[in-house]
Design a protein around this nucleic acid. Structure first.
Length: 858
RNA sequence: GGUCGCAUAGCUCAGCUGGUUAGAGUACUACCUUGACAUGGUAGGGGUCACAGGUUCGAGUCCUGUUGCGACCA
């Protein structure tokens, strides 16, 4: 047999598969199966989380493809607005320029160049992993067709009044601009709680407010207390003067104030705090901005103008302290929002942005409630529901250049504002040519939200028709059957796809959602570059193989639990592949080629037994894959192939070579069952064992996935195996090498050869009654005896005593159960009967054990 | 603070609708260099299923609480 060199074989075989179009949709098939690839960042590279998600997707896709579905795994990449723009901005900065200096058009050209240059990396890496999407249909969230889909979607929502422009408080990153609520990450922060004294007008009194952000006090437009607070009742309606300024602001009352926190009096800064913003609206307060969009303090901050907001904080505290306005400063732990991209501290900031109104999600919530989409594991539905219930308007505009520019135009002549799918040539109202487009772009997730149908041709215009998508696709592949992705983007992406899908197509975008967990290191730690515990999938693939990487991830992919990955697990999988290779080598030693199972008649007893075991494995793997229990399916394969096929099938076949032909066919069929998990090795071995070794014409990946059959269970070999184990046990226990054994069981003559060879004895006799002067090993379905004189009996007595104890406990348990009237009355009849039967069996066994002990001690 | 999840053999984990003696892999012990494989084979030891209550004829499995860990939201 040829040596197996995974690195070479995986690369060359992948090319053959791809070049022959094996990954493409076979429109001849009747049943459809569609799954979208969550588009990775176009300029990114493969990390372990990708390896997991794409492995799981590929397993399902290969399974469905083999099982006769017209299978579409839609590939593509995402333009990743902020991330990509940041990379290119840095490059330009390194050249000593800013993006403003080179201008929008030239900058975008640079980004496109960067995209062209680095865009192929991740798709190349996906190929290395063995992923089998329909590459010819690869899309990019900013390709022409998808740009059109985005503009159409925007215009529809705009015209329906669901997209609106508003001057609201948003999460503002001084570097990246406006962010949506979920793009903010909260972290516990040890800060200071500063108590500032505000002098009350026409009085010697002060009112003290506590704040974590003293630099915003220049924007205060009120001091607020709880109307029930006795301490401050007399001050309501009076005025205070802001320290270091001439500005006077009122003391107002509002139930909203927490009397317990700080001093019970709070400063109100409507321009820089979301809660104060609401208060400001309620009480008609002015909005005074203290810093600009870059976080630089403005003229309202007096002498501090020009400082960065965070630098200013210390300076302001210092000054206030010197002037006697600070009462005290306390340590204070609180949550601070950071930009998910650049980690800068987020500021609540009032600005004009575009919002998608939460009402858009109404139908999506209903659809989920009706069970039109199923979550795996099911508990994610709770999270989804909770989030959807508390949904807020989605801020969709971003102050970036890279992305889908908002298709809204403003006429400078008549002031008209309109959305347009096509680039307009004039204002539709006054026909002026003096208009401009909104400079902002859309949140990246806006285009991803359309992915399940935009890639199927929805509103793509003529672009890509017949090449990237076909007319029938929306009908055949929408709703998609399944979505597999990480739980971390449930809100970012899954929920938004639901919203858009239901809104535009009146149907949920997918029937099943499988959310997998995070991959952690072997100690359960999150992988991070700074910790140095990152496992690089590409390194692992180089070191082991794509198959081994895939199988390891699959066998660890338990629903609802994080994956702890270690190199030890990889080694276990490697040992498994070695076992498979050697099993094939054994088969090939006896026969060069094997037929596929459909052309082989299973005639021998061993063949039938093996076929039965195989069929059980097929049944289990199918069920487990249908329920997305990847770990169970992988484990079933591992156990079936190693324990059943190799340890027993192959070993037993050494007794009589007549079964090898059948075992070879069953093995080839087993490779098909394993193929989705280990596409390359199974292809290699399948070819090695086949007469026609032409992958192009005989690839395993397009063979039928094994079907389950109704089979009668052959029992002889179960007994043979039990007898072999029993004899081996006596040998191991007594460390003696006897030549003859007796087995009390009904077995055919042919069993003798198998038992003799595998248990390594010279003579075996099947008996109907126990023999004298022998010791026994009692197992579940038979008894094995060896002449007493041949062996040391002490260990046997030990085992018998142990068994006796265990049996007595058992019997007691059953008897108590059967003594219990309630049990007899309330438990189902069959359970009662079963218990009685079990009790009898246990008693039977106990008496045998006791008798045996008596005899031995005689 | 709110919501959710997890806790089973030394380690990593299965155990789906409650019903035989709670299972794997790995590690451990002993034996085996028998022509597929030492990345192997054979046999064995190892668990009061986190704790406390409850429901039930019956609980690792359902309910409540406690402790510990984790995630998400505020």
């Amino acid at each position: 047999m040829r040596e197996y060199n995974p690195k070479e074989f995986e690369k060359s075989t992948y090319e053959i598969w791809e070049n022959n179009g094996f990954f493409e949709v076979d429109y001849e098939k009747e049943k459809n199966f569609c799954i979208m690839m969550p588009p990775p960042n176009v300029t990114g590279s493969l990390h372990i989380g990708h390896a997991l998600t794409f492995t799981l997707q590929d397993i399902i896709v290969r399974y469905k493809r083999m099982d006769g579905y017209a299978t579409l795994w839609q590939p593509g990449t995402d333009h990743a607005g902020i991330a990509t723009q940041n990379v290119v901005e840095k490059q330009i900065l390194a050249e000593g320029k800013t993006k403003e200096e080179i201008g929008r058009e030239k900058f975008l050209k640079r980004v496109w160049e960067w995209k062209e240059y680095s865009g192929g990396t991740i798709t190349k890496q996906l190929r290395r992993l063995g992923a089998s999407p329909a590459w010819s249909r690869e899309r990019f969230t900013m390709d022409e067709g998808l740009q059109r889909a985005v503009r159409v979607a925007f215009k529809k929502l705009y015209d329906e009044g669901l997209i609106v422009k508003g001057n609201y408080m948003v999460n503002w990153c001084p570097k990246d601009g406006a962010l949506s609520d979920i793009e903010v990450e909260y972290e516990t922060h040890k800060g200071k709680l500063v108590y500032i004294k505000y002098p009350i007008l026409d009085s010697n009194e002060y009112i003290t407010v506590a704040t974590t952000r003293p630099e915003t006090y220049f924007g205060d437009t009120a001091v607020m207390v709880n109307p029930k607070d006795e301490r401050y009742k007399h001050l309501i309606g009076k005025k205070v003067r802001l320290p270091l300024t001439k500005r006077e602001i009122p003391i107002i009352a509002d139930e909203y104030v927490d009397m317990e926190f700080g001093t019970g009096a709070v400063k109100v800064t409507p321009a820089h705090d979301p809660n104060d913003y609401e208060v400001g609206i309620r009480h008609n307060l002015d909005l005074i901005k203290v810093f600009d969009e870059k976080g630089i303090l403005n003229e309202n901050a007096g002498e501090f103008a020009g400082l960065d907001r965070l630098e200013a904080r210390e300076a302001i505290i210092e000054k206030l302290k010197n002037e006697g306005f600070i009462e005290k400063i306390e340590e204070h732990t609180h949550q601070i929002g950071h930009c998910y991209r650049c980690k800068n501290i987020i500021e609540p900031y009032v600005s004009t942005q575009w919002f998608l109104k939460k009402e858009t999600a109404k139908e999506a919530i209903e659809a989920a409630n009706k069970g039109e989409v199923k979550f795996h594991p099911a508990q994610w539905k709770n999270n989804y529901d909770a989030w959807m219930r508390e949904l807020r308007d989605w801020c969709i505009s971003r102050q970036l250049w890279w992305g889908h520019q908002i298709p809204v135009y403003y006429c400078q002549n008549c002031g008209n504002e309109w959305a347009s799918v096509e680039e307009p040539s004039e204002c539709p109202k006054c026909h002026s040519k003096n208009f401009f487009q909104d400079p902002d772009v859309l949140d990246t997730w806006f285009s991803s939200a359309l992915w399940p149908f935009s890639t199927l041709g929805w509103e793509n215009g003529k672009w890509g028709k017949g090449i990237k998508w076909n007319e029938v696709d929306l009908k055949r592949f929408y709703p998609n059957n399944l979505l597999i992705t990480g739980f971390d983007i449930l809100f970012f992406w899954v929920a938004r796809m639901m919203m858009m899908g239901v809104h535009f197509l009146k149907e949920v975008p997918f029937r099943d959602v499988y959310l997998h967990a995070l991959v952690r290191d072997e100690h359960g730690q999150k992988m991070s570059k700074s910790k140095g515990n990152v496992i690089d999938p590409l390194e692992m693939i180089e070191k082991y193989s794509a198959d081994i990487m895939r199988f390891t991830l699959a066998i660890l992919a338990v629903q609802g639990r994080d994956i702890k990955l270690s190199e030890n697990k990889m080694i276990e999988s490697r040992n498994f592949t070695n076992k498979l290779y050697n099993a094939a080598r054994f088969l090939k030693m006896h026969k060069e080629f094997f037929e596929d199972l459909e052309n082989t008649e299973i005639k021998t007893e061993l063949g039938k037994w093996m076929y039965y075991k195989f069929n059980e494995a097929v049944k289990n793997v199918r069920n487990e894959l249908d329920e997305y229990r990847f770990n169970d399916a992988a484990m079933t394969l591992y156990r079936y192939l190693w324990n059943d096929f190799c340890d027993w099938g192959i070993e037993l076949s050494k007794v009589s070579k007549e079964s090898i032909n059948e075992l070879g066919s069953i093995f080839k069929e087993s490779l098909k069952l394993l193929h989705p998990f280990m596409p390359f090795l199974t292809e290699f071995l399948y070819q090695e064992l086949s007469k026609n070794q032409d992958i192009e014409k005989n690839t395993i990946m397009l063979k039928n996935f094994p079907k389950t059959r109704e089979l009668k269970k052959p029992t002889d070999f179960d007994l043979i195996i039990e007898a072999i184990i029993s004899i081996r046990r006596i040998k191991a226990l007594t460390q003696s090498n006897f030549k003859k054994a007796y087995v009390l069981a009904k077995l055919p003559e042919m069993a003798k050869e198998y038992i003799k060879k595998l248990a390594k004895i010279e003579d075996i006799e099947f008996i109907k009654k126990p023999i004298e002067n022998a010791i026994k090993d009692i197992s579940d379905n038979l008894e094995t005896m060896v002449s007493k004189k041949d062996i040391d009996i002490k260990p046997i007595i030990q085992r018998l005593n142990k068994q006796k104890e265990k049996m007595q406990k058992e019997i007691l348990k059953f008897e108590n159960k059967l003594k219990n009237k309630n049990f007899l009355e309330k438990a189902p009849q069959n359970i009662v009967e079963q218990t009685k039967k079990e009790l009898n069996e246990a008693k039977n066994k106990l008496s045998k054990i006791e008798e045996e002990l008596r005899k031995i001690n005689d």
